[in-house]
Design a protein around this nucleic acid. Structure first.
Lengths: 226, 226
DNA sequence: GTCTATAGAATGATAGAC
DNA sequence: GTCTATCATTCTATAGAC
């Protein structure tokens, strides 16, 4: 099958070029030159430039989501149907962070591609991300099982904030390094995961002491900390 | 000054179209048609499409940053040179969130434009965001004055996570609404600000009890919460 | 200085030959 | 399945009118 060779060559070349130079700088002509195939082959195999990008991103996303769910199930089985909240959050943010962070010189092409996808967020990639809700619902459900007394709204905010910290760390790792003058270590992924999980859990804990059984709104707080 | 009319018409038309339809769908030809000016006027007044986008974004950013710093100074003066940590974080995330969130039908063109800028992050906008570090350093410095015992690294992570939650809430407000089936109220901005601030503060508080005087790494924690 | 008309260069997409 | 040739659209650049 010569077709598959061409297809694969295009995928590999595109992922490498996008990872190296970003989406804005890479044209179809750059990709076909790198893959040593004809310009029209991209449209034949993928339909359009956007669908090529979508296929690259979907492939990597599916792998990450599969790993997330696998870890979620393992955690729930270990706890007999109810996992600890920090285990659930670790299953949520761990695979994503491990797939994108770590020492810069050790990052695979796939990792660098996913970082670009996170930072530049072109239309085809946004469209795919918007379909992730069903996937996230499974984590929300697990979190509710872990914290049956917590208000449902707090669960959603906790999930949302955990993802916020994980994705923002991927998107802005360079800025955080500069801001902290290199003092924030972005190479040790496991430590970062624990950091994200512990802040998310602390937020959920605060939700109980401050908000449960009253209203869904956080109180306007006096200085919580000196 | 006829020049100013043309220039202003382009800026207004561009902001409106980008706000309504996003960066990917709007061409220079769309903008000049909406503004009733000639195509070449864009290049004459702004140099390029990217510089037009940059000018739109810079104008709004400067206003937000000015408000942030104003609130930061007010908080520090009130405390005699040392503000409460939650006041600092409120000055950091408040103006941004107030500028972008709130009831959808009440959002100004400027607000909708800034939401697009957050979600789509085209190259000219990314370039400007990368220059924000000096601005953020002022908040890091104020946080250090507020929490002189806290490890410097924890300050940077706290600042980083607060921004993460604020920006992710702007970027993904639609997804959070869908995920929570409308139960998370994204219209009451003040409540959201308090929520972001309280989680960020809870994370910083955790940093003291768990991590200070030992290592920069968070411990791998046993279940923190049931 | 300000604006218009127009040409140039590059890109993604496609029709049709092989 | 592959390739050549070509098209329509886009941003950019410039010459010259006002």
């Amino acid at each position: 099958m010569a077709s598959d060779q061409t297809r694969t060559a295009i995928l590999a070349a595109a992922e490498r070029l996008y990872a190296d130079r970003g989406f804005a700088d890479v044209t179809l002509r750059d990709i076909v030159a790198e893959a040593n195939v004809n310009l029209a082959a991209v449209n034949y195999h993928f339909g359009s430039k956007d669908e090529l990008i979508a296929e690259l991103f979907v492939t990597r996303s599916i792998a990450t989501n599969r790993e997330r769910l696998h870890k979620l199930r393992a955690a729930e089985e270990k706890g007999g149907g109810r996992a600890d909240i920090d285990e659930i959050l670790r299953a949520l943010v761990g695979p994503t962070l491990r797939g994108c962070l770590g020492p810069e010189n050790q990052r695979s092409t796939a990792a660098r591609f996913m970082i670009r996808a996170s930072i530049e967020s072109v239309p085809p990639i946004r469209r795919i991300k918007n379909r992730e809700i069903d996937h996230l619902r499974k984590f929300a459900a697990a979190m509710r099982r872990a914290l049956p007394d917590r208000d449902e709204v707090e669960i959603f905010w906790g999930l949302h904030f955990a993802l916020a910290m994980a994705h923002h760390t991927i998107r802005e790792s360079e800025r955080l390094t500069k801001l902290s003058d290199g003092k924030c270590d972005l190479d040790d992924v496991e430590v970062i995961i624990e950091r994200v999980v512990s802040v998310a859990v602390a937020g959920l804990r605060g939700a109980e002491t401050q908000r449960s059984n009253t209203t869904t709104a956080p109180r306007r707080t006096a200085p919580l900390l000196r």
